[in-house]
Design a protein around this nucleic acid. Sequence first.
RNA 1: GGGUCCAUAGUUCAGUUUGGAUAGAAUGGCUGCCUGCGGAGCAGUUGGUCGAGGGUUCAAAUCCCUCUGGACCCGCCA
Length: 648
Amino acid sequence: MVFEILKEEIRYQMKQALLHYNINEKDINIEITEPPLKEYGDFSCNLAFLLSKNLKKNPFEIAKYIVNDILPNFKGKENEKSLIKSVSVEKPGFINFTIDMKKFLKIFFSNIQSITQMPKYGNNKELILIEHTSVNPNKALHVGHIRNAVIGDCLYRLLLSTGHNVKVLNYVDDSGLQVADIITAFKYANIPFEEENIPGITKKFDHYCGNYVYVKINELYATRPDLEVKRKIILKELENPNVEISKFTQQIVKRVLRDQLQTCWNLKCHYDILNFESQLIQSDLWDNIFKTLKEKKVIRFETSGKNVGCWVFTSKTEGDKVLVRSDSTITYFAKDIPYALWKLGYIENPFELEFISQQWDNTNLYQTTIKNIENEKSNVHSLIDFEVKKVITIIDYRQERLQSLLVEILINLGIEKTKYSYLGYEPVTLSNKTAELFGFSLKNKKSTQMSGRKGIFVEADVALDLLIKKAHEEINKRNEYISEREVSQIAKEIAISAIRYYFVKHDIGKMITFDINDSLSLEGDTGPYIQYSYARGKRIYNKIENINDYLEDYALTDLDLTSTEIELIKQVSKFSSTIKESVNNTDPKLVARYLFAVSALFNNFYEGSPILKETGNKKNIRIKLLCSTLSIMEHCMKIIGVTPLEKM
RNA sequence: GGGUCCAUAGUUCAGUUUGGAUAGAAUGGCUGCCUGCGGAGCAGUUGGUCGAGGGUUCAAAUCCCUCUGGACCCGCCA
């Protein structure tokens, strides 16, 4: 907030300069940035460079002219309201501003309450839907899936914290090829349902299915083509919910899903509704949409060429895409259309919501079921009775092309482009060291792509367990008198925070090379580092007696703060603008990076500015700074899912 | 063949949307700092032809072109 005021003041003055030159401010993109060196002041403006094009003059001369002649009174206004103490011109043509620190600090310390408040600007009436995780229910989550879940969950937390109305969906492809694979294995390849005496398989059913059953059946296809035939039959049969194989499949899916959710809940991910592909197929959604697509001439029936007999969508950029095959079955891609339209609320809802279970955060998880017409009064939940403002889907970037096709179809149906968006993230690969450690062959590459089919992956549960163990040891090193139960509790919180922070801090569009040792570090730019600096701060906080006495009044005489303290104050001041930027760019990474920067500055402050043994005004000021830092750290930690700890 | 994305310190990554001053973190290596509010920390040091070449510009890691290396997408599979 304080920063915004400052920037606005500078911007206003720069606009005055523009008026002098008779240039429309809209034609020129004035940037107010922070210079790389302290000697250049606190803010910097590029106006002179921009004008040099129009005026065909040396930017340095323009800058000097602006500062000395156009805005001369801007310089000597020290006793007025201005927050700017001085203006200077630097080498190539920068106009640099120095803050009047006394005034700045005065505003900061008298507005701590509002500065440290979470900015709220969502509209509660409009609903935002986020779909994430959506892992095929035939295997346990691996570290690549965590990336999806954590990004989605952090985005959810970010939007929720800023006052938006958000719900999270998790799509379960319970009738796809991957599920058919393990069903084939159980039914026709003599692979038992239960994990009996198979080495290296943990107790969880999802691990058994993913680590053993799925890999095994894929190996068997090479020598048993009959199994692939069986799989194809199963796939077709799964479209009918009443046949025996569908009922069997539902049982298997349910067990895998239960275990997958456990992993997600362990990582503190929140969901509201589970959607099932089988229900989308069984409902009449597709029939209605197919009709509409035909009526609106979005798709056409091909009478010649390679797609003869199919219903085809012609994309402007991607060419032809088959939606309905010549045998009248619908393609994988076509199934996404009814789901997208359902999410957007553009079609009559054929589903009702059924309570499944409570989650780790005491919220309820629901699943869709097809409406029972005879039972009209059944509990139709109001969870999605809002106007859907936006749907955001977190997807593997390899699906981006299909999603862009989908958007094209939605636009053809008259839906605004902005309503449906997707975030494609690059995959997680394994570092050579890690691949080697888990016994995967290397092939002379920089990193190894994971593959569920080939059994090349590191499971989420394995990574989490490893971290818990590591944290456990560290806690025992540091705490002599502590109960085993408490150690376990804290170790888990540290491990979760480490994983979540790791997966959200990277840019979504860059590949991550996952190394089981380096990536799951507890030191440096990590979740535990943030937790540690928070714990240090909190410990001081708890030792302050009568803390309210310090927070109420303040004396602003003699504010001789250290440079570290000023840096921390500046950083804290950027809280709300960082949150806003993060929301506007739908990028939770920005919050993570900000949080780390605050934590690092706080550790500096901690080393150099003692609080408890300090007295008088200095103590007062430092306590205020401590409290405001802890407060914004809490906000940010909540968004990232890094647990605030008082002891670790 | 058509298209998308990536390449920055030994390693893992920010910075590229919107061009700005001496390219930043973390980690590793080396060196200091605990009778102090918790050393999971702090300070210092080491380490970069920003893949290569050209272009645009007062100014390029950032924009444009070419090339090299890598990943991926392009099915009546899901």
